[in-house]
Design a protein around this nucleic acid. Structure first.
Length: 207
DNA sequence: GTACTGATATGCT
DNA sequence: GCATATCAGTACC
């Protein structure tokens, strides 16, 4: 089972919170990579100075933000890195959820090769910890590029979200709400508590 | 472990 | 020209 269009079509803050604990699945040439989502951020264009589409601004890059809920928006930042977002709310509303960090579950050796060009065993301690604990890093590890923009996560077989098993790890975890990071320029919007992560997870970008 | 620096696409002025 | 939703490498506690 995977979340429906209705799941992503709800309020952005609700979607951001409920994505925590779900599984991000990436299939490359029939090989599956899986990671548990442990950190997200909400971006709500109409009222959010940190959002690329603040005040219904529209440029070629941000077009996907106005698209159907459940599609991917992957943008290129600082000339080197990608960030992966999922569109929420209804079509025409420029809102989305940035996936900031995941916990590697399956295909860890492939992720390691994509990130450091080495098998997981040969990574340093720091490299193991840094495999997917940041927006640019998880895109490298999952081989997500701007080619994946517009991909529909509710129908795609190569990039989608999966419901987790109802085991101990996935029920009853605590969600921490806090301020977002890396957006000091956004004035009052920088203090909005729109960053969510799973308490005590070792795989978030910042505790 | 923390502090500093450089890489450089995209959109804004 | 200038700033940014970042990361890796290096230099140092």
């Amino acid at each position: 089972m995977r979340p429906s269009k209705e799941f992503f079509g709800r309020d952005t803050l609700v979607v951001a919170k409920e994505l925590l604990g779900k599984i991000l699945v990436r299939e490359i040439d029939g090989v599956k990579l899986k990671g548990r989502i442990v950190e997200t951020e909400a971006y709500i264009g109409p009222i959010d100075k940190a959002c690329h589409a603040y005040g219904f601004k529209k440029t070629p890059r941000v077009e996907p933000l106005y698209g159907e809920p459940g599609i991917a928006y992957v943008y290129f930042i600082y000339g080197m890195y990608y960030c992966f977002n999922i569109i929420s709310k209804e079509k025409g509303s420029p809102e989305g959820v940035l996936i900031r960090a995941v916990e590697p579950l399956e295909g860890i050796d492939i992720m390691s090769q994509l990130r450091a060009k080495k098998p997981y065993d040969e990574l340093t301690k720091a490299q193991k910890k840094n495999l997917t604990n940041g927006p640019g890093k998880l895109c490298m590890a999952f081989n997500i590029t701007k080619e994946n923009t517009w991909e529909d996560l509710t129908t795609s077989d190569e990039l989608y979200i999966e419901e987790p098993l109802n085991n101990q790890e996935n029920i009853g975890f605590e969600i921490v709400e806090t301020k977002r990071v890396g957006i000091d320029y956004a004035e009052e919007a920088k203090d909005f508590p729109w960053r969510f992560y799973i308490k005590d997870s070792k795989y978030v970008s910042r505790a």
